[in-house]
Nucleic acid binder design. Structure first.
Lengths: 355, 355
DNA sequence: CTGAAAGCGCTTACAG
DNA sequence: CTGAAAGCGCTTACAG
């Protein structure tokens, strides 16, 4: 009997299975297509119809199956998040953000680690073997120009996050590093500080120069002279912060505030100050940059600049997905640059200058 | 003409599209089924056939489409990684590991943040709305007994990572915290230290008691008396480490080594020592636990215990996927517990006792 | 604005 | 050990 044939179907949906578009369509009394249109927020659905469908979706607790969507849509988009420094304090938040973006845009996200000494060619081969369409680069890899050039040449879509200098061939999501450093320095000046030390970041990261430029511009805007002795090199490590702090605090006319280009170096400044029995913030105000876990791990907690890291990587993921899909539809898809807002976070490590 | 009808097909594979099983099958002169069997490492394929297929796969650069696999396999498995503390130093590595596991096992991974004050019921509702099958819990949530109970009752599969006390209803991946703390303490004793301070971890995390137990057992094994004054409470924060270190170093007969239950507290010990002009490790050896970024951010770098965090979360993800799928096939799938190895990492913060 | 049918790339259930 | 066909849950291309 036909009935029996029906029962011997190849695969059956398990009893407690999740509702599908077909279930929703049946419940709402419309076609699958219409359900699909409602899900995808297309405009050409009558309000009444749309409402019926939405009611059915809510009633059944329907959630679209992402595997089916991307398979049907021909939307396959494979994205690799390539990171260089595993102990980067950014990474947790960065990953969370890109994962969210991947979820929202049906992107297949893979994590790749660029091992020390591995050539750009080797990593490219690895990505190509995995059929990667696009690469997401957190710092410090977002500044690896040679790597980016080789990816671009291979036709991969690229997004640089938090770079100071976006490549012509890549999308980029940044905050205004220069403006942020300016704001922090201005904050210190507003607190009455006149001798403000600055610890620069790694010269290989393009944001470092921007942060320094922001510091210098704020000094000029505040009518303060630029004292070269107050600017010390650093490379974003705690250890380099230690060295810079020693030098700064050895100065005859020592600063009353020190602005370090990241939190790790700022934490080192606090440590050196304590070793010398200088109280923070009473004797010395200290501020950092990034608002990583380090900022709230030390005592006092650090005044710092917060970047919306998760939001930046989420957005970068979205830009990449858009680019890959646009290209696949034969549309030109040039790189896009977006700038997000930073936030100045005031905590215990800075106070008005005490005379 | 039939030819024309062919050309008017609904959707066409774009020209430069990736090879599919059909392409591989054609190239190898076998059926799709056989290709599928080779990909899935099933045994019932003749060596000669298998080799032909593998050659074709290599030649075409074939990579399976995960969306298609999970759709066809009815293998849909939605996993939520629920975290409580965003600044957890674990998280980056933890995320990377679970992402890898998700990739390997065709699991759809979602990240959920448990907001402060949110009820277990609220988060459960959120997960259910997203049709989540299983929940992965990094510390400290891996010890949230009430939460776990409510998830278990709702029928979710659960995995606790790095808990000291696995629930009967959940899978768990741990290292031997007791053994690790024993090893670290024994290492200090082996270095000649006799007065070894200990800073305990957060009492709400079950691993804390295990670490303390390991410390105490090593003392007994080394024939050393247990001095209650040498054991100070802490809660895993830098700040609590500061307080505990002050107390310990105020002792008339002060310790020559301090073992803190995590790296943040150990870093605080280093800071307090420096403030008092005690050199680490010359005047005081210090060791931590976890090998987080903090361990190598301070100077000297910390001797510590490394947990294979990424591997732990990868494995937990796998256990969860297996459980969900076994259940779906109607098989009983009890929780599984796995213990991985830790590593003692010797760095600059510990040296033999100098008399 | 709405729908019936084909197809995305795989695996499952059967059959040989 | 191997294969032909159906089906997973969606979206696309057409047609009305």
């Amino acid at each position: 009997m036909a009935q029996q044939a029906e029962n011997r179907k190849r695969r059956r949906r398990t009893p407690g299975a999740r509702p599908t578009v077909a279930d929703v369509a049946a419940a709402a009394g419309v076609s699958q297509m219409t359900v699909s249109r409602v899900i995808n927020r297309e405009m050409k659905v009558q309000p009444a119809t749309r409402e019926k469908v939405e009611r059915a979706i809510a009633a059944l607790g329907y959630v679209p199956n992402p595997a089916a969507r991307s398979l049907a849509g021909g939307n396959q988009c494979r994205l690799a998040l390539l990171y260089g420094n595993p102990s980067n304090a950014y990474l947790a938040e960065f990953l969370a953000g890109s994962l969210k973006g991947a979820d929202e845009h049906d992107v297949q996200l893979t994590i790749e680690h660029w091992r020390d000494g591995e050539t750009a060619k080797a990593i490219l081969l690895r990505l190509q073997a995995n059929r990667i369409d696009a690469v997401l680069l957190p710092p410090p890899l977002s500044d690896a120009a040679a790597l980016i050039a080789s990816f671009a040449e291979a036709g991969l879509a690229i997004a640089q996050v938090a770079t100071g200098q976006p490549a012509a061939t890549a999308s980029a999501v940044t905050i205004g590093d220069e403006a942020a450093a300016h704001a922090m320095t201005a904050h210190l000046i507003g607190l009455g500080h006149r001798r403000i030390g600055f610890i620069a970041g790694d010269r290989d990261q393009t944001a470092s120069a921007l942060r320094r430029a922001g510091y210098e511009r704020a000094l000029r805007d505040g009518g303060l002279a630029l004292d070269r002795a107050l600017i010390q090199p650093g490379d974003f490590t705690y250890r380099s912060g230690l060295r810079a702090a020693e030098t700064l605090l050895d100065l005859a006319d020592r600063p009353t505030a020190i602005f370090a280009s990241n939190d790790d170096m700022a934490a080192a400044v606090v440590s050196v100050a304590h070793r010398r029995h200088l109280m923070v913030p009473t004797d010395l105000s200290v501020s950092g940059f990034d608002d990583t876990a380090m900022a709230t791990s030390v005592w006092p907690e650090l005044t710092t600049v917060r970047q919306p890291i998760a939001e930046m990587s989420r957005l970068a993921t979205q830009l990449l997905a858009d680019t890959v899909r646009a290209r696949r539809h034969g549309k030109a898809a040039g790189p896009k640059h977006r700038q997000l807002d930073f936030t100045l976070i005031e905590r215990g490590s800075t106070i008005p200058l005490i005379r």
